[in-house]
Simulated scan of single mutants.
Amino acid sequence: MISITAIIKSKQENIEQVRNMIHHLVTETRKEAACVRYDLHTTENIFIIWEEWKDQAGLDIHNNQSYLLDFIKQSENLVALPIQVYKTFQTL
């Protein structure tokens, strides 16, 4: 199992737009066969996506989906900081 944590900090004036874009991303991603979990957590202008994937092959497919690539490109000017992505493996 592969876990991903993505942290997205929206500029204050773009919160609603970023939220809508992330909701679309979550909806589409949850349809992927290798997606075990794709949960969104929010507070103010910070969005945290906690993901679990069956395997690297499934994650690779996700990373090349047009809706993910579009989100990354379209959000560049809407976020306060670059999107942070952490790939982790459960050890205990």
Score class of each variant (00 low, 15 high):
residue 23 H to F: 08
residue 57 A to H: 13
residue 81 L to K: 12
residue 75 S to C: 03
residue 68 L to Q: 05
residue 36 V to D: 08
residue 41 H to L: 07
residue 35 C to M: 13
residue 89 F to R: 15
residue 14 N to P: 05
residue 75 S to F: 02
residue 45 N to V: 13
residue 64 N to M: 11
residue 23 H to L: 14
residue 64 N to L: 10
residue 65 Q to S: 11
residue 3 S to H: 10
residue 5 T to S: 08
residue 9 K to F: 00
residue 40 L to Q: 02
residue 53 W to V: 01
residue 71 F to R: 00
residue 13 E to C: 07
residue 90 Q to E: 15
residue 4 I to W: 01
residue 72 I to T: 09
residue 12 Q to T: 14
residue 56 Q to C: 11
residue 4 I to Y: 06
residue 55 D to K: 07
residue 78 L to E: 02
residue 60 D to H: 10
residue 51 E to W: 03
residue 89 F to N: 14
residue 70 D to S: 12
residue 16 E to K: 14
residue 50 W to N: 12
residue 24 H to S: 11
residue 1 M to Y: 06
residue 53 W to D: 03
residue 1 M to I: 08
residue 45 N to P: 06
residue 19 R to Y: 09
residue 61 I to M: 11
residue 6 A to K: 04
residue 91 T to P: 08
residue 88 T to Y: 09
residue 84 Q to W: 04
residue 36 V to S: 05
residue 37 R to C: 09
residue 7 I to L: 06
residue 15 I to S: 03
residue 42 T to Y: 01
residue 44 E to K: 12
residue 61 I to V: 15
residue 89 F to A: 12
residue 42 T to H: 06
residue 63 N to A: 14
residue 46 I to K: 04
residue 12 Q to H: 11
residue 67 Y to S: 02
residue 47 F to W: 04
residue 6 A to Y: 02
residue 89 F to H: 15
residue 1 M to L: 09
residue 65 Q to T: 13
residue 41 H to V: 03
residue 23 H to G: 09
residue 20 N to A: 10
residue 68 L to R: 05
residue 74 Q to I: 10
residue 76 E to F: 05
residue 61 I to L: 15
residue 92 L to D: 14
residue 47 F to G: 01
residue 16 E to S: 15
residue 3 S to K: 09
residue 23 H to A: 13
residue 67 Y to W: 08
residue 40 L to C: 04
residue 81 L to Y: 15
residue 31 K to N: 14
residue 17 Q to C: 06
residue 14 N to V: 01
residue 37 R to F: 01
residue 77 N to P: 06
residue 83 I to D: 04
residue 76 E to G: 07
residue 73 K to E: 13
residue 33 A to T: 14
residue 47 F to M: 05
residue 29 T to P: 07
residue 92 L to N: 14
residue 5 T to V: 09
residue 9 K to E: 06
residue 5 T to K: 04
residue 69 L to R: 11
residue 33 A to S: 15
residue 63 N to K: 13
residue 58 G to N: 03
residue 23 H to R: 12
residue 44 E to G: 09
residue 4 I to K: 03
residue 77 N to W: 07
residue 54 K to H: 11
residue 22 I to C: 00
residue 69 L to C: 07
residue 8 I to M: 05
residue 47 F to A: 00
residue 64 N to I: 04
residue 57 A to W: 08
